[in-house]
């Protein structure tokens, strides 16, 4: 199936794409056919910077177990992080 269900959210950080590092500004998360992974359906994540054009994208296609394990690992890592460490002072980010 091609699902039309897409989670979309603003993000702030950096990703490494085909042309090197760039600032990521937007994430989309959806279940659909993968372009590359050898599965019928995958959990797909696109980290993008629309201002830099379509090629400013880091793409992931994960099978269901991997996606769930990754989400749990992110939650565990964040849960072990001291309060305030990730919400502290930020510097401006080059693109």
């Amino acid at each position: 199936m091609c699902t039309y269900q897409t989670e979309q959210l603003p993000v702030r950080g950096s990703g490494k794409g085909a042309s090197g590092w760039f600032a990521v500004r937007e994430a989309t998360v959806y279940v659909d056919h993968p372009v590359h992974a050898p599965d019928l359906h995958t959990l797909n994540i696109d980290l993008r910077n629309p201002e830099l054009g379509p090629s400013a994208r880091v793409a992931l296609e994960l099978d269901g177990a991997s996606a769930r394990a990754l989400a749990e690992a992110i939650s565990r890592a964040l849960g072990r992080t001291p309060d305030g460490l990730l919400e502290g002072a930020t510097s401006s980010q080059g693109e």
Partner: peptide, 20 residues
Amino acid sequence: REAPGASPDDAAATARAAGG
């Protein structure tokens, strides 16, 4: 229009994010 010259998968991701 959304992704002139982009690879098809990048173009599709852009179109999806833009609402199709």
